[in-house]
Design a protein around this nucleic acid. Structure first.
Lengths: 211, 211
DNA sequence: TCAGCAATCACATATTCATGTGAGCAGTTA
DNA sequence: TAACTGCTCACATGAATATGTGATTGCTGA
């Protein structure tokens, strides 16, 4: 059973190259390759939807990012991989926010494109390495102040993690190979330090990043 | 010229396996594999720093996430890849926020680990496919308003809020001026709908935005 | 060297939770 | 009207939690 892929790309040469390559793979077929979002929308109205679309950003008419929104609204099950030369953060994040399931740069080789599609069908999220790096950096820039170094000891942190993982005292005792009474003792100390008096409050504080 | 990799992992077997495998690669060497952040910190004080660290999250003593902060502060040039069994969003995002340059799940094969390290050294950001997917989903969730219409009734939402605030059943009953038995009844229904069976899990889900 | 803290364990008790079973009432919809 | 759903309350029981008191060991800094 081969998976169906569609292409939206205005460069005729690239488009043809990718289509022929993918269509010749056992696992894939690529019956449709058009050069604008508008054409793809027309196609979708008269044919069964592909599982995956490769889409450029810079397109005649509607842009790939806008087009993705349009297509995902009517066909939310289609996974879309952006395939573009743009590597500036703004375009990347807009594409991801608009619903892209992957983001590849155009110098990606044909076999890598194929691998990316297969990875996507398998639940992954293909990204070119440089893109992945930018996405990760995004988290670190927006990192909320890592304040609140509560004076919990390492062991107390272990216990807190156990609580957050939803473990009972007994399960925590087992995880760290200590007595349940010791767990109790640690928890008492944690409550004192955090000025709380229930598991619930500790878990809430921890998940809110206040520990 | 081979790149130097260090390992922090408390499972002796896994640690030894990875170390031997990496050390045998032409492109890499792995002179240090310890089972806690504390030991790695000691090592770093007396030896030249590795370029890359593989680090577990669940460790004796200081957790991998906290440990990463400590290490990155003194040695910001070390790239750290988390190598762990955890795939819940909070741990992933906390790790990335704390400065992780990659995040692999523990079922990753040795050759894949090697490839990930090389990719990292080449400016990429290695992630297991499931992780990449969650990271991407994060963008999409935070963009188009969280609509998460869980099928909780308004009253049930009240109760959940009470739990998140760390209140006991009795305090929730007082807050909404209903009987404690009613609170119990609501909570039972909430547990059924959310498929959980403890306050802790409800609080976790709620704070993760899954309600 | 002594005080203090982290970590460990023990025993005890009152409270809270999780869960089962059952039921009444109001408002909505089939 | 009958069926559903949301909200309310009650009684009961075993498990888990919160809290008090106390103790030992090992390490650290004044």
């Amino acid at each position: 059973m081969s998976s169906v892929v569609g292409i939206v790309e205005d460069n005729k040469k690239i488009r043809g190259l990718i289509q022929r390559y993918l269509d010749m793979q056992d696992e894939l077929s690529c019956p449709v390759a058009v050069d604008s979002v508008e054409e793809m929308v027309e196609y979708l109205e008269e044919h069964p939807a592909p599982e995956v679309l490769l889409m450029d950003i810079q397109l005649p008419g509607m842009s790939g990012i806008k087009g993705m929104g349009v297509i995902k609204e009517k066909y939310p099950d289609i996974d879309i991989i952006m395939l573009t030369v743009y590597h500036d953060s703004h375009k990347i994040f807009n594409a991801l926010r608009a619903g892209a399931s992957g983001y590849l740069l155009k110098h990606t080789s044909l076999p890598e494109i194929k691998e990316s599609i297969l990875k996507l069908l398998d639940g992954g999220a293909p990204m070119s390495p440089q893109i992945a790096r930018k996405v990760i950096n995004h988290f670190q820039e927006n990192a909320p102040k890592k304040n609140t170094d509560s004076d919990l000891t390492p062991r107390e942190h272990d216990i807190v993690n156990g609580l957050v993982d939803g473990l009972s005292y007994k399960m925590i005792a087992d995880r760290y190979d200590i007595s349940i009474d010791t767990v109790r003792a640690h928890i008492r100390n944690i409550y004192k330090k955090l000025h709380v008096n229930s598991k619930a409050e500790v878990i809430a504080k921890s998940l809110k990043g206040e520990i």
